[in-house]
């Protein structure tokens, strides 16, 4: 990038700012507390004051998994609509009819998938 005639004072202010930032980082490295031998309690994961038990990475919430499957498919379909929307005026009916058909074809399975996702006993 070529300099576009920024006055010297501005450069000076930026230099001051960078110097302050460097000073703060140095201060942080020097004076902020450091514990060379932390106790196990200090490094234990937070569990509302209880002693942490069991693995931290617990189980997946499986009952909402169908929504993720639906998302993987329909997010891409939503992207396709942008290409249609951009040239809407130029395309006219010849572009709109296939897109409407596409949306109807896409939404019928969506309704069925939503129906299935609502049935908790499947999960």
């Amino acid at each position: 990038m070529v300099s576009q005639g920024i006055p010297e004072e501005t450069g000076y202010i930026i230099f001051l700012f960078a110097a302050t930032l460097a000073l703060v980082i140095t201060l942080r490295l020097v004076i902020s507390p450091r514990d060379p031998r932390p106790t196990p309690e200090k490094k234990a994961p937070f569990e509302s004051g209880q002693i942490a038990s069991g693995p931290g990475r617990t189980r997946f919430i499986i009952q909402y998994y169908p929504y993720i499957l639906m998302f993987v498919v329909y997010d891409v379909i939503a992207m396709f609509l942008f290409a249609w929307a951009l040239d809407l005026r130029a395309l006219g009916a010849s572009g709109t009819v296939p897109v409407l058909t596409f949306m109807v074809v896409a939404l019928v399975p969506l309704a069925y998938a939503l129906h299935l996702a609502g049935q908790r006993e499947n999960w």
Partner: peptide, 10 residues
């Protein structure tokens, strides 16, 4: 900014 950096176990 000036607090201690503790990274939990595991």
């Amino acid at each position: 900014l000036f607090k201690e950096l503790i990274i939990p176990e595991g």
